[in-house]
Nucleic acid binder design. Sequence first.
DNA 1: GTTAGCACTCGTTTAATTTGAGTGCTAATA
DNA 2: TATTAGCACTCAAATTAAACGAGTGCTAAC
Lengths: 347, 347
Amino acid sequence: MELNERKTKILEAIIRNYLETGDPVGSRTLSRYLDIKLSPATIRNEMSDLEEMGYILQPHTSSGRIPSDKGYRFYVDSMMADREKEVSDMHDMVVEKAEELSGLLKQVAKLLADNTNYAALISSPQLHRNKLKFLQLSKVDDGNILAVIVVEGNIIKNKMIEVSEPMDDDTLLKLNLLLNTHLNGLSLEEINLGLITLIKERAGIHSDVIASVIDAVADAIRADEDLEIYTSGANNIFKYPELADNEKASSIISTFEEKNELGQLINESLAKDRDREDGEKTGIQVYIGNESPIESMKDCSVVTATYELGDNMKGMMSIIGPKRMDYEKVAHALKTLQEQLDTLYKK
Amino acid sequence: MELNERKTKILEAIIRNYLETGDPVGSRTLSRYLDIKLSPATIRNEMSDLEEMGYILQPHTSSGRIPSDKGYRFYVDSMMADREKEVSDMHDMVVEKAEELSGLLKQVAKLLADNTNYAALISSPQLHRNKLKFLQLSKVDDGNILAVIVVEGNIIKNKMIEVSEPMDDDTLLKLNLLLNTHLNGLSLEEINLGLITLIKERAGIHSDVIASVIDAVADAIRADEDLEIYTSGANNIFKYPELADNEKASSIISTFEEKNELGQLINESLAKDRDREDGEKTGIQVYIGNESPIESMKDCSVVTATYELGDNMKGMMSIIGPKRMDYEKVAHALKTLQEQLDTLYKK
DNA sequence: GTTAGCACTCGTTTAATTTGAGTGCTAATA
DNA sequence: TATTAGCACTCAAATTAAACGAGTGCTAAC
């Protein structure tokens, strides 16, 4: 069977109506709602076809139809195609450049959640390539030496190293020189065991300090270490009855709180984004129901977008809501913030 | 009327029973549950008295009684009095010393939540007095200077400062000297406008860099800036029907997510802890229902404990659950972690 | 191809009924 | 005087029954 124009119109009407009300929609309602004049009976026939084709389904015999995952998928795809649509009832979302990255990301998550009334999350940007840019040991007091490490992208890492006896300025200077000459500009792969042993040898009695420093450097460079996730508006799910029963709500909230499962979503989304042909799309992805990589979100839709923060640092943000979420509004919100973030550190 | 021994026993039996089952408890049940032999009728008379005295109440005529907030308060107070009780069914809770403070605190929050099946939170420790301990500017690359600031308690703060043109090593050295001679060892109150102006004058053309540094120093020293709150197990509240309805659950979850309201709880709890006579109690507080400073937790009980991490840095942890929570288990869990944290950095 | 008509389905709503745990009061008992 | 048995009463919760109504599929007429 073919999805002709009339069927398409009816399918869209069903979905639109369901998005608005959240109730299954019947033939009589559609007959009034549609711009083409058709009797309920005719529409019933078409709906019967649409159901057979898998686009809609009945929660139970003798109730209206609701979109199936396939139906949503069709709707989202065709919606994404004509992207010029303006969404009006969105507040201005302006990101203010924050002192700290974490503050900025928290701000973005909150903006997304507050403006859409769904749950939102954003990941800290992942560095593309990590090279050591700056390394310095300083004496803080007699028992402590502070290692400051800066890697590409100006990510800063500190480590306090305890020493059993005070280290004089001269030794410190030498260690600094030693570390910098050997390590500066190197990436994780390039710092191998041979090099480490060499440095330790040269450091002589201070090799234990060096070991601590190198540990810290490895930590700083390893990307997955820094993967921070900021969430906001998880409690918004209570606004949607189909997600608000204890079982579902609990598992969604718990996923949001633990955060480790969210990592999968982020990785998958970033990977997909990397694969797509350049220039083609805007980097927005939609996971409907079971399409989502996260088990506890099988009754939700997840919309993700990647962003780029200046120096090739890519991160991901996402909105999670009921399947009948307002996809246009959500996509628009994500795009807006995407653009703002992209330009924020560009200037 | 007086709370004699028999009334006390009955009251305790009511509360114990209610803690176990969560159902209102009636005279017949009590008659079986009590060790002294009394007929339901007698018990009814006593219950009637207890109700008049405000220790228990009926959800509706012709149902059993449940403890009032006053009843819980009585129970908690008398329970706290004999503190030697051993709680058996608690898993071993061992905190492993973590690299980063934030990791440690997350671990503690999770331990508390997992072991008690209630929601848990822990605040980062608040410094008692904040003095600048170490300050250093370093050149990271031509366009960026990194300021590293360490304050008492080894809290480290970084700030990247952009400069329009490269700064040579000599100038940097001079600025470092200038800042250190004037600022080292000072507290927030001592860094006044006069001093700032003086330093800026001496810095000449680099006064804008100095301004940024001093901003960062102020940030680092101000205590409330660092107040981080880590939560875990918020979704545990779904395990208790009396908290699991949408309205309540939503508001509790939202408080946990926003976190800013939790600050009040932390401050109040730390303040109360400071006020108590030394050596008297263990620093554990119980807020029952409306006693809690947080509006959204009026149907919960909140148990808080302070901890001390080495250098006079005090923080607070808390467990939030239904009023009928297992107070002994919770108090025991908090004490266990309290002791572990106290010794962790003492060694 | 479209539509009106009709019998049928089935979740939802409302009301009525039953059940049962629990109470207060009174009178009998120890 | 304190305790207890007995009994009528209350009321939330569970159960059952009936009515409702939105919606369907099918058939026959247009």
